[in-house]
Structure formats: structure tokens, C-alpha cells
């Protein structure tokens, strides 16, 4: 996949892309802050209140801006992986959902892309995943911003070497889960007025019985289940990436440049031939997109 682009890269203006990225992130952050500050007056004001609309439009606009900014910069080798990741999110998520009971594990594909191709690709995959999945389950649409955040954080974790050791991956997942859970809670509270699963609903009920506000109860529930869920997802992805043959994983410029799997590679290098310097050079044709991925 390191094969250089056979056609000339389009001359995009990077400043505009960067601006769109920043705007997208700002939209998501501003929406979250507005929701958290505004919540006490709103929840008893009846369903479909202004907050639901703000959550929907703010988070969706942010996610769409991120997609517009990132998608054109991705090399084709990463782009063809995105549909695969979306399908993995759905198929593996379903498989795990039907065998291992308490978690949803619907971000495996997103995290896999983030580890292989970087935070920008991860964020785009997360947002796209929600949008495409909403074709058969419209309730995942408002979580696009949360999914993008998970992809971005997973990519950052990979970049700073947290996937080099198998015991660091779940730690990164746990932290990602905390952040993602806190960001997604207002969506659940204001758009749905609760959670979509019966099991998670029971946990929220327990906090509500203690007199919490709806947002507080859902945030606490998210803090209980999301970090565990993401820790498991990150571990699964780490094991999957370790199982990839070196020929496959080293095709990705992001993995080579930031030595995402250095631990494993170091061991292999010691066994095979010391000083295989050629793995460090980035592929020439992927240059236009990798400024963002790195």
C-alpha cells in the first residue's frame, strides 16, 4: 500500500483544510459547552426541546466539517480501508454483542484505522461510520462527534507509542473511554432522554433513583461502561494489529514513521537482521496526505 500514487496529487490549499478542521473541532466543543451550561433549565421542559436540536445540529455539523477537511487528504490506500472499517464496526460489533454479553464494542474498525493510518484518518472514519450506519439505525447519527473523537484519540495514542506494548493499549482505551463517554452523555440525555440499551438504562435508573439529574445520571453511567468498553476495544485492536504480518502492517506510512509497533518490530529485528533502515523512509507518493496523518 506504500505504492506511490500513480496520478499527480491534486493541489489542495492546506490552509483551508486546516481551517475546516479547526472549525469542526470548535463546533463540537462549543456545542458540548453550551449543552452542559444550559442543561438544568431544559430537561423538564419537555422532549424535543432546543437542546436536542442544538446537540444534533452542532455535533453533526462538526463531524461533517471534519469529514470535509480530512477525506480529500487521505491517500487511496487509507481510503479503501474506511469501508472495511465501517463493516468491521458493524459485523464484529454484532458478533461480540451476540456472544460476549455486556459491551457493545462498535468501534473496532475505527480504532483499527486510527492505529494503521493516524488520528486524522481515525476521526474521519469514526464520523463516517456514524453517518453510514444511520442508514439502518438512525439513532447512531447524533453520536458522530463522539465516534470521531474516539478515532482521533486512538490515533494519537498510536502515534505516541501506546500500542507498542500490549499492556499500554487498554490504558489508552480506558482514558479514551472516559473522554468519549463524557462527550457523548449530553447526546444521550438531550436527544434520546435516556440510553438505547436496556442494560445501560438500568444503570441510569439506579443513579436517577438516588436523585441525580438526567445528565448527571447518564454521565455516570457512561463513566462506568465506556472506559471498560474502550479498553477492551483497544486491546482487541492491539492483538489484531500484532497478528498482522509485518509485510502488511509496514505498508502504512503512519506505522513506519511513528514506529507504532516498535516493540514487536524491535524484537523481530533483533532476531532477523539488525539495522533495517529502509522501513523508516516514508513512501514518496503519499506525501500530500501525510502532513495531517502525522
Amino acid at each position: 500500500m506504500s505504492s506511490p500514487s500513480l496520478t499527480l496529487a491534486s493541489q489542495e490549499r492546506p490552509v483551508r483544510r486546516r481551517l475546516l478542521e479547526i472549525l469542526g473541532a470548535l463546533a463540537i466543543a462549543a456545542t458540548y459547552i453550551y449543552l452542559v451550561l444550559n442543561q438544568p433549565t431544559d430537561i423538564t421542559g419537555g422532549p424535543g426541546s432546543a437542546s436536542a436540536l442544538v446537540a444534533l445540529s452542532g455535533f453533526l455539523a462538526g463531524a461533517v466539517l471534519l469529514i470535509i477537511a480530512v477525506l480529500p487528504t487521505l491517500p487511496a490506500s487509507t481510503l479503501v480501508l474506511i469501508p472495511v472499517a465501517l463493516v468491521l464496526n458493524i459485523v464484529l460489533g454484532q458478533f461480540v454483542g451476540s456472544t460476549l454479553v455486556p459491551f457493545y464494542l462498535d468501534a473496532i474498525g475505527t480504532v483499527l484505522i486510527a492505529v494503521l493510518a493516524g488520528p486524522a484518518a481515525g476521526a474521519a472514519t469514526g464520523a463516517l461510520s456514524s453517518i453510514v450506519w444511520s442508514f439502518f439505525n438512525p439513532t447512531v447519527l447524533p453520536f458522530a462527534a463522539g465516534a470521531a473523537l474516539i478515532g482521533c484519540l486512538a490515533g494519537l495514542a498510536a502515534r505516541y507509542g501506546l500500542f507498542r506494548r500490549f499492556y499500554l493499549a487498554p490504558v489508552a482505551g480506558f482514558i479514551t473511554g472516559i473522554i468519549a463517554g463524557v462527550v457523548s452523555a449530553p447526546v444521550a440525555a438531550f436527544v434520546f432522554g435516556g440510553t438505547s440499551g436496556v442494560a445501560t438504562g438500568a444503570i441510569v435508573s439506579a443513579f436517577r433513583a438516588m436523585g441525580d439529574t438526567l445528565l448527571a445520571a447518564i454521565t455516570k453511567q457512561a463513566l462506568l461502561s465506556d472506559p471498560m468498553d474502550k479498553a477492551i476495544v483497544f486491546t482487541i485492536v492491539a492483538l489484531l494489529v500484532y497478528a498482522l504480518p509485518r509485510r502488511t502492517s509496514q505498508q502504512f506510512p503512519f506505522i513506519r514513521r511513528h514506529r507504532v509497533l516498535a516493540g514487536k518490530d524491535q524484537a523481530r529485528k533483533d532476531q532477523a537482521a539488525p539495522g533495517t533502515g529502509h522501513t523508516e523512509t516514508p513512501a514518496p507518493g503519499t506525501a500530500p496526505g501525510t502532513g495531517l496523518n502525522g
Partner: peptide
């Protein structure tokens, strides 16, 4: 599932 969850949540604890 969404409906059941909401009914239990708000029906019993509000």
C-alpha cells in the same frame, strides 16, 4: 430496546 429502556428509566424513576 430504546422504548423499553426509556419506559423503565422515566416510568419508575423520575
Amino acid at each position: 430496546p430504546l422504548g423499553l429502556s426509556l419506559l423503565v428509566l422515566h416510568g419508575l424513576f423520575f
